[in-house]
Amino acid sequence: MAVRLTVNGKKQTVEVESDTPLLWVVRDELGLKGTKFGCGKGLCGACTVHLNGQPVRSCSTPVEMAEGGDVITIEGLTTDGDLHPLQLAWVEHGVPQCGYCQSGQIMSAAHLLQHNESPSREDIVAAVSGNLCRCGTYSRIVAAVESVVESRVGQSSHGEA
């Protein structure tokens, strides 16, 4: 079937079987390799993308469920070559080890920050707990997200002053 999607702001039409997971459409039909295959069952979070503003596991989301939808992938966080604040924080904190899970981690955290101006540590941990990291980078992930939250709070209080 022909499936229409808007991916990272760009309208796309792909010709695939309706049950093809969104993951493989994004990776192989659209060539966006940042979204990773980890488990195929929605258990590890490496394939996390935003579909219509919600974080979803693209490995277990048939593309037909995304028909007409708005998809943001890790590549969509970078605009005109400028890294997203989370990506900058990831670099600053040296978060990635093997790095394979980090796209998914960042996409989960990005969704949190879109909907919660100043999340607590518990909020952050809850938002990323579905994202496995075999290298054990968890503490740096939380520290990196917290640094973005702190700089936001700093900016807004500065703005009010």
């Binding site: 390799k33 295959f37 890790i74 990506q87 040296g94 978060v95 990635p96 790095g99």
Partner: peptide, 22 residues
């Protein structure tokens, strides 16, 4: 020296792994 030289590629979804070969 601190940080990692590969941190940016690994935070932006760059196609660097075996599974990304096209």
């Amino acid at each position: 020296n601190r940080g990692r030289l590969d941190a940016e590629a690994k935070s932006t979804g760059a196609p660097i792994y075996g599974i990304d070969v096209e």
